[in-house]
C-alpha cells in the first residue's frame, strides 16, 4: 500500500478508532460474562462446553488487542487478531441471518432492550456492515505497516 492511504497520519488515527471500538466493546462484555455467555449460546454455533470459556476470554482478547493498537505495541499482530475476530463475527451473524434466527449481536455487551424479530434481523445486517467497515480499517493498518513485519506471517 502506498500514497495517502498508508500515511502514518492516517494509520495512527485508524489505530485509535479500532482501539476505541474494541475497548468499548470489551468493557461491556467484561462487566457481565454470564450475559455474554447467553448471547454466545443464542447463536447456536458454539458447543455448550465452550460457551463459558469463550465468554470469559474473548472480551479480554479484544481489550488487550485494542490497547496494543492504542499504544502501538505489536500492532500488526493485534490488528490481525482483531481482523480474524471480525471475520468470525461476520460469519456467525451471516449464518444466523441465513437461518432467519434472530439473535442479539452481543457485540457491545448484553442488550436490555426488548426487540422484535424484525428489529433483531435488521440490527444483524447493520452489525455485519459495521464489522465489514472495521475490517477495512484493519486492512489499512496491515497495509500501511507492512514494512514493520518481521518473521512469521
Amino acid at each position: 500500500m502506498s500514497g495517502p492511504l498508508s500515511s502514518p497520519w492516517l494509520t495512527i488515527r485508524v489505530q485509535f478508532v479500532l482501539a476505541a471500538v474494541f475497548v468499548v466493546a470489551a468493557v461491556g462484555k467484561i462487566a457481565d460474562p454470564p450475559g455474554f455467555a447467553h448471547e454466545i449460546h443464542n447463536y447456536a454455533l458454539v458447543p455448550g462446553v465452550a460457551v463459558n470459556a469463550m465468554a470469559i476470554a474473548l472480551p479480554w482478547l479484544e481489550l488487550i488487542c485494542g490497547l496494543a493498537l492504542f499504544v502501538g505495541l505489536a500492532r500488526r499482530s493485534a490488528a490481525r487478531i482483531l481482523g480474524v475476530l471480525l471475520v468470525v463475527f461476520v460469519i456467525a451473524l451471516g449464518i444466523n441471518l441465513a437461518r432467519k434466527r434472530p439473535v442479539d449481536c452481543g457485540c457491545f455487551g448484553t442488550s436490555k432492550v426488548e426487540k422484535t424479530t424484525e428489529e433483531r434481523l435488521r440490527d444483524m445486517k447493520w452489525a455485519i456492515a459495521r464489522d465489514a467497515g472495521l475490517l477495512l480499517l484493519v486492512g489499512q493498518v496491515l497495509g500501511a505497516t507492512r514494512r514493520d513485519a518481521g518473521s512469521g506471517l
Partner: peptide, 24 residues
Amino acid sequence: RRESFWRDAVALVALSVAAAAVSN
C-alpha cells in the same frame, strides 16, 4: 522493532487468557 506475528500473537492471547482468569 520488527514484529513477529506468531510471537506477538501468542503473547497477546496468553496475556488475555491470564487477565480473563484473574478477572473471573
